[in-house]
Structure formats: C-alpha cells, structure tokens
Simulated assay, not measured.
Amino acid sequence: MTNSVPGKRERLIDAAVRVFYERGVEKTTIADIARVADVPVGNVYYYFKTKDQLIEAAIGAHARGLDQLTAELNRLEDPRERLRELVSGWVAERELAARFGCPFGSLTAELHKRDDPLEGRASEVMQRLVDWSRTQFEELGRADAQRLAIALISSYQGISMLTNAFRDPELMVAEGERLREWIDSL
C-alpha cells in the first residue's frame, strides 16, 4: 500500500506555487513556504538550497500542470472543443483570478522584473501554452494559427489582469463567453 500523503519536497513545491501566487516572489520568504508546507524551516534547505531553487521547482510544477491539462484536452476529438474547454477552465478559476490574477502569468511577469535566468524558464512554459494553442488552430486549417494563438493567450492574460485589478470575476465570465463565440466563428 502506498502512502498518499505527499512528502516534504512535494509539499514544499506545492506551497511555493501557492504562496508565490498569493503573495508574489519578492514578498515570499522561505519561512513562509515552510509554514504553509508544514515543514520546519531548517528542513527546507535539505531539499532547496536557495529561494531560486524553489522558484524553479514552482515553474516546473506549472509546466507539469500545463502538460497534464493539455493531455486531458487532447483527449477531445475536435480542436475547437479543446480550445473552448481551455477557456472554460480559465473561467472556472475566476474567483482566484479576481484575488490574485493568472497563476502563471503573474509569476512570469514578476520574474521578468528580475535580471536572472529564471525569467527565461518561465517564458518557456508560457510558450508551450502558445504552441499548444497554435496547434489547435492549425488543426482547424488556419494559416494564421500563430497570430490566433497569441490573440487567445493575450486575451486571457489581459482579462486576468483586469479581473484582478477590478476584483470582478464577472469580467472573466463575459470574456470567456466572447472567446468561445470567437472560437466557434473560426
């Protein structure tokens, strides 16, 4: 029988993802992450020597989450339906977006303010989402698939920011409906 309780390393990564999202990278301390993970702060250094290693682990967790999401979406036969379901997933997270913005977009934007290699790692994950979206538009026979993928992702990022700025989850609902109609029109 396997133990279903995550180990300390996994709890630390999950806590880092959550705390970076809710507080931002710069405001988060290793002690904050240890507290949320219910791990003694001294034990953190056994798994992660620096805060940057925790940031990199959080980026990896986002990448794995995106891979899992796109694998689930790829089970749908129709690329249009995959895109619609992607948008529906964003809308389902509207309450969190109202409080904190886009989980990964916020992290990416914050890391781009720093001058270090982690900003590139975050961009790679965002690029994977754009690439996946482009593939869906290509399967719809669109020669302008890259442009459409950028439009879709930038629309989501923009509405996430506005939903957060105005603390209004209904903005995400309205934009989600507009995006689904747009996808259907292609």
Rank of each mutant, 00 (worst) to 15 (best):
P40Y: 05
V44W: 01
Y45M: 02
Y45N: 02
Y46C: 03
F48N: 05
K49T: 15
T50G: 06
T50H: 00
T50P: 06
D52N: 13
D52P: 03
L54W: 09
I55P: 00
I55W: 07
I59E: 04
A61I: 09
R64I: 06
G65C: 03
G65I: 09
G65D: 12
L66C: 01
Q68Y: 12
Q68H: 13
Q68S: 14
Q68I: 11
A71G: 02
E72Y: 08
L73V: 12
N74K: 06
L76V: 12
D78A: 12
R82A: 07
L83N: 04
L86I: 06
L86E: 01
V87Y: 00
V87P: 07
S88C: 06
S88D: 10
S88W: 00
G89C: 06
E93C: 01
R94H: 04
A97H: 15
A97N: 03
R99K: 15
F100D: 01
C102N: 08
L107P: 08
L107T: 10
A109E: 13
E110Y: 11
L111A: 09
K113M: 12
K113Y: 00
K113S: 12
R114F: 13
R114I: 05
D115V: 13
S123E: 07
V125H: 05
R128A: 10
L129F: 08
D131K: 14
W132L: 10
S133C: 10
S133A: 15
Q136R: 12
F137L: 11
F137C: 06
E139F: 05
E139M: 12
L140V: 10
G141E: 12
R142I: 04
R142H: 09
R142V: 07
A143V: 13
R147Q: 12
A149Q: 11
A149K: 03
A149S: 14
A149R: 04
I150S: 00
I150F: 11
I150H: 09
I153P: 04
Y156H: 11
Y156A: 02
I159P: 00
S160N: 13
S160W: 09
L162K: 09
L162P: 03
L162D: 02
N164A: 14
